[in-house]
């Protein structure tokens, strides 16, 4: 564990707490892509079910339980409790364009051709693009509530912090994980446009609005 990874994980944790706070206080999931949230459930289940056969640390296990539990709870809130506030007509990204290529990539790029490793690769590839339905929705509506942008920023910062973590681990432990690093760089890259608007507008007190 190093500081970059710890801060990254805490940022990930914070992003989910911000999202839950937004949904609970506004009693609405307006502006949140159900498809992205469903993809995160798939990511967490595919990767973290190793809870049952791989023990790393109490920290690691507790985080895995939290991520699986909270992501399922968010889906429940969107699908049942606050269903009327969820508008599928603007959540139109075709997720099969993400699922199928990720499935194929995970069959080609994995560390061992066995179900658990293929699932692990699949979850890494899928996580890297899972935010696309959400960003696509933002692009369509052209604006977002401030709290939704804080959620996205925390999620993007989490990914960005994993990059110095890998650099640090490479130099201190000689560890390199090419699949996670490649997917992680792609994933962070997807946030660049968003970060630009977030840092130049939202943090200056302006509304999050994309140029037409």
């Amino acid at each position: 564990m190093n500081l970059f990874r710890l801060l990254g994980d805490l940022s990930h944790l914070a992003s989910i707490l911000v999202l839950l706070h937004k949904i609970q206080t506004s009693r609405s999931c307006r502006g949140i892509s159900f498809k992205t949230q469903a993809l995160y459930v798939a990511v967490f289940v595919a990767r973290y079910l190793d809870l049952f056969w791989r023990y790393i640390s109490l920290y690691n296990s507790a985080m895995k339980v939290f991520f699986i539990g909270s992501s399922c709870y968010i889906l429940y809130l969107m699908k049942y409790r606050y269903r009327p506030t969820n508008d599928p007509s603007i959540d139109t990204f075709r997720i099969e364009y993400l699922l199928v290529p990720c499935a194929i990539l995970s069959l080609i790029f994995n560390y061992n051709f066995m179900p658990t490793e293929i699932l692990w690769s699949f979850s890494i590839f899928l996580e890297s693009v899972a935010i696309l339905p959400q960003l696509f929705m933002l692009q369509r509506t052209g604006e977002a509530e401030a709290i939704t942008t804080h959620y996205l920023a925390a999620l993007g910062i989490y990914r960005a912090l994993y990059i110095p973590n890998w650099i640090y681990r490479y130099f201190t432990e000689g560890v390199i994980d090419p699949i996670a690093v490649t997917a992680g760089i792609v994933q962070t890259g997807l946030y660049l446009d968003f970060f630009y608007v977030y840092f130049t507008k939202v943090l200056q007190g302006q509304k999050f609005e994309l140029p037409a």
Partner: peptide, 10 residues
């Protein structure tokens, strides 16, 4: 070393 990384990251 081991060709399969530990997967100790979240």
């Amino acid at each position: 070393g081991n060709p399969v990384p530990q997967h100790d990251e979240l």
